[in-house]
Amino acid sequence: MTDHDEVLDRIHRGLLYTESEASFQNPQRRADLIFEYNSTRPGDDTARRALLERILGSVGARTVLLSPFHAGFGSNVHIGDDFFGNVNLTFVDDVEIRIGDGVMIAPGVTLTTTGHPIHPALREDFRRFSEPIVIEDRVWIGSNVVVLPGVRIGYGSVIGAGSVVSRDIPPMSVAVGVPCRVVRPITDDDLTTRVPAAVGTAGPDDQPGLRSAGPRTA
């Protein structure tokens, strides 16, 4: 096993590694292309799509990602079909972020695969750990949400604005808070109204919040 293989093994196992040890991955960063994407005209769909295909690890059909967005690498992000990402979406993608089909993300969201040790002696040379994030199909994430390393958000779930998601969220759930917790399931009763009883305004430009289970978060 080479030194690089040993570092990659530690990264993929969620163990600590340093900036210097991981520097061999820097050619995978897409900073210049991300800058170029954020500088394109909003109506230049052809150029934006071409850049997005070069930046991301994979990208599905009918993807909308508004400028600006930010990514540590870009190449570790995989997005499915019919994705909508609003402004100031940040991917801290030292390892993979996988996003399914039909996902909506409101403004100011951060998806971070990486954290740091608590003790300062262990943070020399930006020592850190990384764990992948998975967002399953048809999830809706509200404004200013932070999703932390290793989290999986299940199919169809709604994350209220301002939440910090530090643990897995099961499918078809409304979850909100710091730390984010499930407040109720999504059921067929939610088919009868445009705005469910425990969810705020609807649409990719807005964000979910609470009405019946504590203060609104939207």
Score class of each variant (00 low, 15 high):
S157R: 14
G156D: 06
L65N: 10
M1A: 14
N26A: 08
D189A: 10
G80D: 01
T217N: 02
V64Y: 11
D45E: 11
E136H: 04
Q207N: 06
C180L: 06
T217W: 09
I105Y: 08
N86M: 11
P132N: 10
D94M: 13
F126N: 14
D94R: 15
D168N: 02
T217G: 09
L52Y: 14
R184W: 03
V109H: 01
R184F: 07
V199L: 07
M104I: 09
P185D: 13
A50N: 08
I79T: 03
I118S: 00
Y17K: 03
V103F: 03
L66R: 10
N144Q: 13
R127H: 07
V165C: 07
G74T: 01
P208R: 05
R123W: 00
V151Y: 06
L65P: 00
P208C: 07
T192M: 06
A197V: 03
G177T: 04
A47R: 14
P107F: 11
E53L: 11
D44K: 13
A71P: 08
V109N: 00
F129S: 02
S58A: 10
V183P: 05
N88D: 14
E96S: 15
V165H: 05
T201N: 11
D125V: 00
A47T: 07
G43C: 01
P204D: 15
N86D: 12
L191E: 03
P204C: 15
G57W: 04
S212C: 15
G57V: 08
D44A: 03
H78R: 03
Q28R: 15
T114F: 06
S143M: 12
M172R: 07
R48C: 03
V176G: 01
G154Y: 08
R62G: 01
Q207K: 13
E124N: 05
D137K: 11
P117R: 02
P68G: 02
N76G: 07
A22F: 12
A121Q: 05
N76H: 15
G14I: 03
H12V: 09
N86T: 11
V77A: 04
G74Y: 05
G100E: 04
S39A: 12
G203H: 11
G102K: 07
S75E: 05
A161E: 06
D190F: 04
V164C: 03
V87K: 13
V178Y: 06
F84W: 12
H12A: 04
M104E: 09
N76Y: 12
I118K: 04
D137V: 09
E53N: 12
D81N: 08
H70Y: 10
L56Q: 14
Y155S: 08
I79A: 06
V109C: 12
T193Y: 10
D9C: 15
P132C: 05
G60D: 04
I97S: 14
N38A: 05
G43L: 05
H116V: 00
V139M: 10
I99R: 03
G160A: 02
L56S: 07
R62C: 02
T112V: 14
E6N: 14
R128S: 06
N76K: 10
G203C: 12
S67F: 10
S157N: 12
I34S: 00
P120M: 12
N76D: 13
P27S: 06
D82H: 01
V59Y: 02
V182C: 13
P196S: 05
L65D: 11
